[in-house]
């Protein structure tokens, strides 16, 4: 199977890294409390994946990201297109967007913790607010740069100004909005993990820290790997879906 061989060759470096890790840690060349044995990390990984507690934390994290992102996508796309379409929306939103753009998003975490406590609400709010600004900006720019000939073409075939948004503006700006959402997904995971590190009592970030503080380094490693894996799969899954939805569009890598 040439496809399988290609995958093996591609990910062989990863196996080499893990192999070197095991080779160095197995004979205790490096103290166990500094870097746990790779085999132990794997064992911890298996343990985690078969424990109900882990799935509880994963569900908490996942629902925070999901709700926060959904809010930011809906609000961001609506506001971005609205700003390009209605003068008064732009008048109102633009200064606020310009002002909030340079705020490093994790800096709002402590503020939201003060306002909304350390539960789900503060995390969702941080993710929603942190992701909405880049989505607004991209949707706005994408809408403004829709080829005017496409708009004119539709108008001369009987499309009314009101239907224009749905028939032309939205599909035409979708590729750029899709890219912005992909960036937002990465930002959402950073904000999730950061806010769960700072103050939480559920979630994968919290779990990582609590394993670290009791010295279960193999479990800590395993959770970190799982977070990385989830972030990576979310990105790839989204990209795969978008490649289908936007089959008409040519995507570059990245």
């Amino acid at each position: 199977m040439p496809a399988l061989r290609k995958i093996v060759v591609r990910f062989l470096p990863l196996l080499l890294v893990f192999g070197a890790w095991e080779a160095l840690t197995a004979p205790r060349l490096i103290p166990e409390d500094f870097i746990p044995r790779f085999a132990h990390v794997l064992r911890a990984l298996g343990d985690l994946l078969s424990s109900a507690e882990f799935y509880g934390h994963a569900a908490a994290s996942f629902s925070r990201v999901f709700i926060g992102l959904t809010i930011s996508i809906i609000a961001g796309v609506a506001l971005g297109i609205g700003m390009a379409w209605y003068r008064w929306v732009k008048r109102f939103c633009e200064p606020l967007v310009v002002l909030s753009y340079p705020i490093p998003k994790p800096a709002i975490i402590p503020v939201f913790i003060i306002w909304l406590g350390i539960g789900d609400l503060s995390k969702i709010a941080v993710i929603a607010l942190g992701c909405v600004v880049p989505i607004i900006i991209s949707s706005y720019n994408a809408t403004l740069s829709v080829d005017r000939y496409l708009v004119w073409s539709a108008l001369s075939k009987g499309t009314s100004e009101r239907r224009l948004l749905r028939k032309v503006i939205f599909p035409a700006s979708l590729p750029r909005i899709a890219v912005a959402i992909r960036v937002a997904i990465a930002v959402a995971f950073i904000l999730l993990v950061s806010s769960e590190f700072i103050a939480a009592n559920t979630g994968l970030g919290y779990l990582t820290f609590s394993y670290g503080s009791v010295g279960s380094n193999d479990y800590m490693f395993a959770t970190i790997f799982l977070i990385v894996a989830v972030g990576f799969s979310a990105d790839r899954g989204y990209a795969a879906v978008m490649q289908r939805v936007l089959a008409w569009h040519e995507f570059g890598e990245l």
Partner: peptide, 25 residues
């Protein structure tokens, strides 16, 4: 060949998750 898969996996992943590890080390 060696670094491409590592970068491809690492780029979209939240690296901040490694923070407790760095504290440990």
């Amino acid at each position: 060949w060696f670094f491409e898969p590592l970068i491809a996996i690492g780029f979209p992943a939240p690296k901040i998750a490694f923070l407790p590890l760095f504290v440990l080390w």
